[in-house]
Each structure stands twice: as C-alpha cells, then as structure tokens.
Nucleic acid binder design. Sequence first.
DNA 1: TAAATAAATGAAAATGGTTTTCATTAACAG
DNA 2: CTGTTAATGAAAACCATTTTCATTTATTTA
Lengths: 157, 157
Amino acid sequence: MRGRFDFYPPWWHGRFKGCGYRITVARQAILEILSKTTEHLSAEDIFLAVHKKCPNIGLTTVYRTLDLLVQMGLIYKHDFGDGRARYELAEGPKGKLHHHHLVCTKCGRVIDYTDFIDQEIELLKQTEKGLSKKFNFKITNHLIQFYGICEQCQKGN
Amino acid sequence: MRGRFDFYPPWWHGRFKGCGYRITVARQAILEILSKTTEHLSAEDIFLAVHKKCPNIGLTTVYRTLDLLVQMGLIYKHDFGDGRARYELAEGPKGKLHHHHLVCTKCGRVIDYTDFIDQEIELLKQTEKGLSKKFNFKITNHLIQFYGICEQCQKGN
DNA sequence: TAAATAAATGAAAATGGTTTTCATTAACAG
DNA sequence: CTGTTAATGAAAACCATTTTCATTTATTTA
C-alpha cells in the first residue's frame, strides 16, 4: 500500500529546480541509496549499490553527482583516513541530528555520536570567537574526530 | 664560531639507536629540514629542500623516512584537505607547545594556535571519557581543526 | 681494519582513488 | 514534438603514494 506522500515528488526536487539542476535517473538513484543507509559510503560503495538497479550508471557520474550534492549541501564528505572519501546525507526532510564521529583505526568502523555535542558546540563557539578575533580569521567550519579501537577489535582479533 | 653543543650528536640520534635504526645521510638531512621550519611541509617540499643539499636522495626515500619518523613519533602527519599529506616536527629537544590548526580553505595557509588549547583539552578529556564508557571504545587520538578564510584572503583577491 | 650482513636506498613501475576529455544521450523549456 | 544544453559513459589522464628489485651503505663481526 502506498504511503500518503508517495504521490508527491521527493523532498529534494525543489532544491534541484531552485538551482537549475536537472533531475536525472542517476541523481535520484544516488540520493535514494544515501537516504536508505546510516553508513558512511565511499564513491565505490555507492557505485556498486546503484549499479544493481541501474547497471548503465558509471562511476564517473557517481563522482560528479557526489560533488554536486556536497556543493549543494545535501551531503557531507568525510575523510576518515582510509584513503577514500565517504559520504553521508546531511539532512532528511525531518532534519538530522548533528553528530561527530568515532573512527576505529583497526577495522575502519565509524560510530556516530551525538553525546557531548552541546558542550562541544559551546566550546567551539567560544574558540571560534576568540580565534576569529585574534587572527582575523573567518571560521566557516570545523572538524572534530576521535580515533581509537572499537569494542569488537578490542576483543577478538 | 661553533655553538657549545655542536660537538654532541643531534638529540634524535639516541632515538634511532634505541630502536635499532641506522643514522643515514638522508634521515639526518630530512630531520634537519623539518627542524628548521615552522611550516607544514609536504613530502615534495621536503624532497626539493633536501635535494638542494643532497641531489642523490630520492623521493621514495623521503616518503619512507617520513613514515618511519611518524611511526617513531618524531613528526606528525597532517591532512589539511589539499590532497597531500603535510609533516611537522612533533617536538624539539626542548619540547614544543601543543597546538591545533586553522586552515584557510582559499589559499591553504595553515595557522598554528595555542590559545584556548587548555579548554579544548579539558573538553576533549571529558568527551573521551564519556565516549569510551558509552561505546566501550578505546580512544587513542583526536583531531580538531578549524576551517575558514584567512585575513589576506578576506582582503585582496 | 677488512670482510660479512642486513638495512637502506634510488629508479622505475605499479597502485588506486579521483578527475578530465570528448563524443553521445537525455532532461525539459517552448 | 523538437531544439537546446546539461548530463552522461568510457577511456584516458592525473597525481600522491607505494612497491619492486637490484645496488649501496651503515654497522657488525672476525
């Protein structure tokens, strides 16, 4: 049975129209993949997932689409130090909790956490203010990440 | 005129000996370059600088030496998002102030800052403790970085 | 001090994620 | 439906970094 909103176009259509971008099969497929996972997918991950449904979509298009989505602010591009970029939906129609990441340096697992975010934000705000003033540096962004060994890797192997 | 300590081997010799590593011309040259700059040099920067004095030292050796130095904890390897790793001496014989970085997303300039570090460290400590407990994650490292536009880039160009 | 040995090195090739090129296809305004 | 132009796919290019392998060199041993 169809949900109540299935007759309306996906929420991101407006964003595309507003920017003059075309809504293509590839772009819809890629956004669909990203909106159906909580993982941090690499370009290749996304390519493989998209490929199952649309085998004619190439890796190049995946990269180009991801760049576009990052530039539009629809997704985040992360570097967890494993030599490949990872992507994550920035927000859904309902919005999404701001979070930071715990990265396991052994298996590469990434854990999102929202705890302590308030304190972090507070500190960041103060630091940003101080640094902006002292160095006359206009801060637009920050990166906080913790590295270590996850539960699983501490136990077996 | 020679300084008082020029007759003693450089302070890192002990570290090498202790680990069973050999003290070679290339390693000394690379460490010398790194200890004479406050900049965040890329492997190629270092290769070029070393090349002036010792044209026979190859880029491969620079990469290998940098890996070794990182592993020994003598230098830090940073990723400021410009597609190449950057290296910085971790500490001198007198030690070095712990600092974080402000990265200009326009020109790539990196500013070290030590201000607010105490508060940051305090927050990090608390956060690490909380996260370790909640996720049973053994945190070994963290990354804090601010991005924005530097003074020069705000003005001209 | 000279020979032995194992680590370190240089040059060239390989790797691998990402970007560019260019001819073709498809979205969508009219 | 048709023309315009953005979007695309395939292949090649890119570029920082790593690997291979034969040679050199720092250090050990005799």
